[in-house]
Design a protein around this nucleic acid. Sequence first.
DNA 1: ATATTAAAATAACAAGTGTTACAAAACGGA
DNA 2: TCCGTTTTGTAACACTTGTTATTTTAATAT
Lengths: 180, 180
Amino acid sequence: MARKESITKQMILDVAFEMAREEGARSITARHVAERANCSTQPIFRSFLNMDELTADVYDRAVAFFQAYYDEFPKPLKAPFCNLGMAYVAFAREEKELFRMLFVPEKPRKSLYEILNGESENVKAEIMKAREQGCADPGALFMKIWIFIHGAACMAMTGDYDLSDDETKTMLENVCESFL
Amino acid sequence: MARKESITKQMILDVAFEMAREEGARSITARHVAERANCSTQPIFRSFLNMDELTADVYDRAVAFFQAYYDEFPKPLKAPFCNLGMAYVAFAREEKELFRMLFVPEKPRKSLYEILNGESENVKAEIMKAREQGCADPGALFMKIWIFIHGAACMAMTGDYDLSDDETKTMLENVCESFL
DNA sequence: ATATTAAAATAACAAGTGTTACAAAACGGA
DNA sequence: TCCGTTTTGTAACACTTGTTATTTTAATAT
């Protein structure tokens, strides 16, 4: 009957996500995406209503990417929140643009907590762990630890943080200890 | 001899700074600045080589603005770094766009430390204070406190922080205590 | 093979950007 | 008043953006 599609929605989303990852969300423009997908701008607008819709899908994909990153991150530490913290800081260091998009957005999307906790309820699991270890007020501990971790990660994103992973680990455990 | 100038470099800088303060650095465009200054784009390019130069001057002005903000901020707390922290978090809350420009920049300009310490050497003064109060390693204390404060401020900027000033004060003193 | 028909390419429009060429205006000395 | 000089305004250029109209291309049912 008709011609077969050669540029799928998936391909466009892949390209746009990779661009956001490398060059930041602002680099997602119709012509740039088209160029990297080796096509004209038409296939984009066949698959997406407009560029906002594509950008929103890239954002959702970044959320999933972070959650997968966290799930696969090694979790050797016993102190509560420290594994989460290590993963968060490493993500900020390795995926600066995605980190900015998700956690320091110019226009508010999902809250930090919402992304962080995700579907596997990571935060709740850590709070349970704290309670099991005899922490009287895990909520307060979480807040303080989390503020600390977010600070380290934001510095990592902008290049104002130069501790190694090992040093970060030591510091995190240290800080967690202090807060208990 | 010649016509008198009616739109000064100062006026343009004032307008551009106010725009950056209210709407963010990205809102500084030739036509927008001109509109808010009630003139054409010509006076801008008479006073500034190009828009980059204007933007750079706005940035410098934001640095000075922050330093004045800090200098004038009340400093009732005895614990080291806490006054600095209160001012920093309040600045992030009240001047979200300026905070972003200065402390979470997309392209690196001055380092956090450089802006923070400024000409009056605020950080050094706090480190002295810590030493006087018997802190063995003020450098380490500063780093940890500062990461914490930066985290709170970044959350305040994005709206992910909802503690009052009083609660912040209590928490900061609390955290400082923990770290000592 | 050819006709059908969706997909993709081309090309255009409108809006917004920095920047510059040129024309109009206004100030101050003669 | 009028001339010269400088400032300002107007208008344009070149470019980038999103988006859409139109043409071309190619797969497949007949």
